[in-house]
């Protein structure tokens, strides 16, 4: 019995098991602990979740987060679609440049990018200084410390996340289908709207889900460009933990975020495998 079990045991499990055990103990277990804390701290029960309907602050917080994420998703996916579409139809040399720019911006630290936007859009930033010296405006426009600043920073950061799944999807479309549509008498616009767009639907859905999921947990950009005026869930969690030390509320918000992210990721996985999305930049 034991010997057959041993013979059945594939030795390659020995490579996987130690790391998996470490990740389970050091990462998965404390994540599950957060779910647990949300119903036990400060006292057992659903008290933390009850605050969701009672507290105006929390309702406003969640609404702000969802609104900012939806607007970010809309702009990032629209602009990302344009970029991916052009890349598919651009000449080889130009496409390589475009891909390099996408990859560079994908990897530049979110902190540096946020800081850059602050220097550009602040009251005495380059944009305001230029507009004033040209005489277009007399007083600086408030780009930061409000939702506009947060949205600019987040859309900028999220565009590469939208482009990658769209590219993966568009690569799989046979260009002869579009030729067929045109040869059957459809105009370019008709071909695009009635043939190409429906074919890229899985890519659009995957891109939207990926951008929305990634936006939900955004911390750095809202904290700096929002300047305390645009409070999103991640920043609220950090204040709860590091300043007021209230684990219960923070754990409740984190649990809601975690469950939403995993649920959306599960749906995303049915449209496109994670490896396909990030595989594009690996090779």
């Amino acid at each position: 019995m034991t010997s057959t079990a041993l013979r059945r045991f594939n030795p390659y499990w020995m490579l996987v098991l130690p790391v998996t055990a470490a990740v389970a103990l050091l990462y998965i277990a404390p994540i599950i602990n957060i779910l647990f804390l949300s119903v036990t701290d400060p006292q057992p029960g659903l008290g933390n979740y009850q605050k969701l309907v009672e507290s105006d602050t929390l309702i406003r917080l969640i609404w702000t987060t969802i609104r900012v994420c939806l607007i970010t998703t809309f702009f990032a996916v629209s602009l990302g679609y344009l970029v991916a579409y052009t890349m598919m139809h651009a000449l080889e040399g130009q496409r390589r440049w475009m891909l390099s720019i996408l990859m560079i911006s994908f990897w530049i630290s979110v902190l540096v990018r946020t800081f850059s936007w602050l220097m550009l859009l602040g009251r005495t930033g380059l944009v305001n200084e230029t507009l004033i010296s040209v005489g277009v405006i007399s007083d600086p426009i408030a780009f930061v410390r409000n939702e506009v600043g947060v949205l600019i920073g987040m859309v900028d950061y999220m565009i590469p996340y939208a482009v990658l799944p769209l590219l993966a999807n568009m690569r799989g479309i046979d260009p002869r289908i579009m030729s067929a549509s045109r040869s059957l008498g459809a105009s370019n616009l008709q071909t695009f709207v009635r043939v190409y767009l429906p074919l890229t639907k899985p890519g659009v859905i995957a891109a939207s889900l990926l951008v929305f999921i990634s936006s939900l947990g955004f911390y750095i950009t809202p904290a700096i460009l929002g300047g305390g005026k645009v409070l999103m869930i991640a920043e609220y969690i950090s204040v709860q933990l590091l300043v007021t030390v209230r684990w219960g509320t923070a754990a409740m918000l984190a649990s809601i975020m975690l469950i939403s992210v995993l649920l959306l990721m599960y749906i995303l996985n049915r449209f496109m495998k994670l490896g396909t999305i990030f595989g594009g930049d690996v090779r």
């Binding site: 911390y219 869930i233 992210v261």
Partner: peptide, 11 residues
């Protein structure tokens, strides 16, 4: 996949 703020909390 898990947002970094949640990972930070867990750690």
């Amino acid at each position: 996949i898990i947002p970094s703020i949640i990972s930070a909390m867990a750690f």
